[in-house]
Design a protein around this nucleic acid. Structure first.
Lengths: 359, 359
DNA sequence: CTGAAAGCGCTTACAG
DNA sequence: CTGAAAGCGCTTACAG
């Protein structure tokens, strides 16, 4: 079955291909009667414009690309847990793409390979996407950001952790979320709460700490400086921070670690110290990572509204609201809502225990 | 940054664009020295051929499309359980695509919409994929199959249930899997086993029953005709069949329903009859559906090797091993392995119970 | 409001 | 083994 082209439609409607093109692209300056004739011809012939031809001739490709980390993604796919993060991103962006007549391509990036630059360059040259949605760790990969900027491809960074120039950023309200989580702990009855901060170089780390401090202040609780530990968003740093907090003469009854990985480290530290969670100490995290759901105990944490973020990201890219060359000053930060996920790792503080006789 | 084209490479290498094209496509008839010159120029310039141009000019698009049901997929994505089935299909097909320099596009099809025909036709016209991977219910949708055949697009049907002509089929060994599952039940000690068959019109139904019969025969167990019920692969039909089996004067101690949906129906029937699973009766299913994992009790079932199936499907499509017009006679069926998943719904039959005095 | 011409970056079919 | 020409199906930039 030979495919029907713009010429077939033009012939049948008795107009030039340029007019057909106008109608297909919903451009103005077509008489209603002409428009109808063309639409009828296209419908009768079952005509759909060839994406490749449009892309080659025009300035739009009708393709959006999502960059995900290759090894992370393959691991998640292989790991039978279902790729939860990715599913949510696909959900949101696919929704917007369908609405806008766009197509989504998922591309796995080898962030650690020496040839990332070539890989990403090749991808852009081959696909010419109208926009790219970056997921961590792409969102913070300077090589990827650099290539994207040089190529003039608009992009959105999902959940970026660093304050790098360029692109539209979609992240949750770090300060607000940290404040809410702290309020939750305070509401449970905790007054002596330890805080594990992420890398201070990152804006999100400072924002989360600010939220913690704000909640403590509004509750009239003083924050002992010894209760604030600085980590690096890693499991190990969290474990170290947790160890330090739990070794304090006056132990905190709750720890708010500002990333799930660090919170998981705190869980390990509690275990080492022979303390039960949440019996002896509550632990809260931040991110709603997959690990947070499967840890023992499962982690109370903050969830990013990923579906909504991905929906807006794709929408922004499709509508061309993201300038290709937007630098730090021009960058619009899109702050989304968030959701507290209460799981097993938090509880009211233990009452003063009745000490049974030594064993 | 203006993109580098085949002309730039040709200029730098001092050859014609045709020669560059030959090298990029690994065609023969290029002197090694020339090939090297071209490769060096391409590398230096960071050249990657534009996919749209290749697609428009040539006969290949380097794009594979996966058809999934729109509402099913959106439901899974929304349902926080992660889209397990889809993840596994994506995993396998993405792997093969990366290897072959192909790109994968996921397309959501509204199978129930009156405009499916137009939708699918439009998709093929716009994307011109070199092949399509069908997942249920696309695998058995006659409209979809018809369009694919008319358009001459090669396609693979994943886990088809009906014997329809056309395309390459990838399914597990129904007979062998049913035989193994029956052996498992027999191994547990069951001798009186009920079987719920799917729609007899479908080849897979008959194959699964044949596997059941074979296992029973090889164990020297006679099959009471009353123990074979015919369902329709739906929950309701399974419930009805289960009800009938459990009302038998001599009740089976195990039921093998040849689809998870029907097995779930049997679970409901047991519940209605006041019987516990697996205490009073074991129930086994077939498919490893998501529901089978989350049911109470979770279902012992047969899992399709989806990742492997998708990998082979994409590979076959990329290598052009699937003739565009293969009809029933020419269709090659690709039979894959399977895996028994033992969960909570099966156990050894109860010993003759010691009847305690009335309650 | 409509159209004729040129060109996007490649591959095809052919010639040598 | 290599290349010049034509053309894939559209959009762009322009003219009227």
């Amino acid at each position: 079955m030979a495919s029907v082209t713009i010429y077939d439609v033009a012939n049948r409607a008795g107009v030039s291909i340029k007019t057909v093109s106008r109608v297909m692209n919903a451009e103005p300056n077509v008489r209603p009667a002409t428009r109808e004739k063309v639409e009828a011809a296209a419908e009768a012939l079952g005509y759909s414009p060839n994406l490749s031809a449009r892309s080659l001739a025009g300035s739009k490709s009708f393709v959006l690309t999502v960059f995900v980390d290759a090894s992370l993604t393959l691991e998640h796919w292989a790991g039978e847990r279902g790729a939860d993060y990715l599913s949510r991103v696909q959900y949101g962006s696919t929704l917007s793409c369908r609405e806008g007549g766009y197509h989504l391509m998922l591309e796995l990036i080898d962030h650690d390979a020496p040839r990332v630059r070539q890989e990403v360059n090749g991808l852009l040259a081959a696909l010419k996407p109208d926009g790219v949605i970056l997921t961590p760790p792409s969102s913070d990969n300077e090589i990827v950001l650099d290539i994207l900027k040089k190529s003039g491809t608009p992009f959105v960074r999902l959940g970026p952790e660093q304050d790098l120039p360029g692109g539209l950023c979609m992240r949750l309200d770090d300060r607000g979320a940290a404040r809410e989580m702290t309020r939750l702990l305070i509401g449970l009855g905790h007054t002596r709460i330890g805080f594990v901060m992420g890398d201070p170089l990152w804006g999100s780390s400072r924002a989360r700490r600010a939220g913690f401090m704000a909640a403590m202040a509004e509750a009239g609780l003083k924050v002992d400086p010894a209760l604030i530990q600085v980590g690096a968003y890693t499991y190990e740093s969290g474990q170290q921070a947790g160890k330090a907090l739990l070794a304090l003469p006056e132990r905190p009854t709750a720890i708010f670690a500002s990333s799930d990985d660090m919170a998981l480290g705190c869980l390990a530290a509690a275990d080492e110290a022979g303390l039960s969670v949440p019996g002896d100490v509550s632990v809260a995290g931040f991110d709603d990572s997959t690990a947070s759901r499967f840890s023992r105990p499962s982690l109370t944490t903050v969830r990013q509204p990923l579906v909504e973020m991905a929906t807006s990201a794709a929408k922004a890219l499709i509508s061309g609201q993201v300038p290709a060359d937007c630098d730090r000053d021009a960058s619009l930060d899109h702050v989304d809502a968030f959701k507290l996920i209460e799981r097993q790792s938090t509880a009211p503080p233990a009452k003063a225990k009745v000490r049974r006789g030594g064993r």
